[in-house]
Design a protein around this nucleic acid. Structure first.
Lengths: 238, 238
DNA sequence: TCTTGTTGTTATTCATCGTTACAAGGATAT
DNA sequence: ATATCCTTGTAACGATGAATAACAACAAGA
């Protein structure tokens, strides 16, 4: 992540929506460009890539699904699809094609803003490199087999949630991760207030790491903020 | 920071506000410069850096968010953002972008003055370097794990408040720290008069250090002024 | 279907930290 | 010295946040 504005490209044939989003999203600090159809979108992306694309399904010329597929052929940029109907099929098709999120019209700009924020966060914290083994504390994580190996070479399998959470911590060690970020990255959605899923997930991971009780050594709680992994992390031998 | 006046740069397109702040802040001893837009701000910063920047959000040309981001690319100078609306989003965005504090218009000059004072103090006392282990008295502090280790190698976890306070003392040993400074640095806000939080926090930390009773050896009370840590502090082995 | 493991939810318990109250220790005036 | 005032130490309380056990919902496999 840089300090620059995240660049967002909005593709919609309705000028009113384009203006609304341009206004709202640039106000909250994003760099917005808009396109009214697929041709214009391609032209803008050619100029400069975007960090996130908001894509209407109903478009003159190529529709949103088609464009989404085209983009996916060469890019992993996060995509949010907009659809007029709240029809479930559209949603399913969209996500199958490779969209990352989906929003039914009409929607509030605030709602979209929340999704955008969550998706950018996911993209930012998602692991880039992926070495087979990661060493930390007295553990070794096998990222391929999803196994945790102790100092004696004894390994145990991790559940999906445990693994995702641990991988997130390992890719951002000694850094406080707030609950929303953790929830976004490991489960793909924002946590509601009064939601204790993340706490429970951390508690379960701590048990796996033998790190529970009064004094967790590895995963520290930062009151009012989130959690952090207190450990030096290195890549292990193949 | 030197004994000279702290230098503050106010960026606002409203001449009335510029004059008000220039008048008020220079009266209480700051060195003030003002700019009406981003270009002028950059010009002034080029001449001479500032110790703190007050930045309006709504500006002709680049807005406050953009300028804040630009400044953050190469500087950690404290920034206070001013916004016309009391809209929560502005505040969140501002702080995410890297502003240190935020003030909704209309505000009193006195209110701003308090924030300025607190932020400058925080900047002055904030820890720069961060060695893993700090040795003092017969203790060792593990700054990564937030654990206090005694002479026998037995370690106990510190709470957030205990750790922050101890770290502040350790980075300014044998130096009186007044209550407002302690409150600013460890909790990010000024203490109110008749507020005993700092006293209680010190009392709790003393208990952790086995330093209570009539004659504390480590954390001395300086009547009418504050507290000081009486110990020689050194960096420990990795 | 039954079993097993995983994950979300809720409720209870515990920890942390701000506040208040009161006691004890200076300081100052007389 | 005594009285009075001010400052500080700390116990006790309460509000809030966090840990986790227990339960429920669900999915995958036998």
């Amino acid at each position: 992540m840089t300090d620059n504005k995240a660049s967002i490209l909005v593709v919609d044939d309705d000028a009113a929506i384009r203006e609304l989003l341009e206004e709202h999203l640039s106000r909250v600090g994003y760099d917005i460009r808009t396109a009214e159809d697929g041709d214009r979108m391609r032209a803008l992306l050619n100029e400069r890539p975007a960090d996130l694309i908001v894509l209407d399904v109903m478009l003159p010329g190529d529709d949103g699904f088609t464009l989404c597929r085209q983009i996916r052929e060469h890019s992993q940029v996060p995509i949010i699809m907009l659809t007029a109907s709240s029809d479930e099929t559209d949603r399913v098709v969209g996500l199958e094609i490779g969209a990352d999120d989906y929003l039914a019209k009409p929607f509030s700009a605030r709602e979209l803003q929340a999704r955008v924020k969550a998706l950018l966060r996911r993209a930012r914290f998602a692991r880039a490199e992926n070495p087979r083994f990661i060493l930390f504390d007295r553990w070794r994580l096998d990222t391929l087999a999803h196994e945790l190996i102790d100092e004696h070479g004894h390994s145990t399998a991790l559940s999906g949630a445990d693994f995702a959470l641990l991988q997130l911590f390992l890719s951002h060690p000694n850094q406080v991760l707030d609950r929303d970020t953790i929830s976004d990255v490991t489960r793909g959605r924002e946590s509601m207030p009064l939601d204790r899923v993340v706490d429970v997930a951390v508690s379960r991971l701590r048990q796996r790491l033998g790190d529970q009780g009064r004094n967790p050594r590895l995963i520290k709680t930062v009151r009012g903020a989130g959690y952090l992994l207190a450990a030096t992390v290195s890549h292990g031998p193949e």
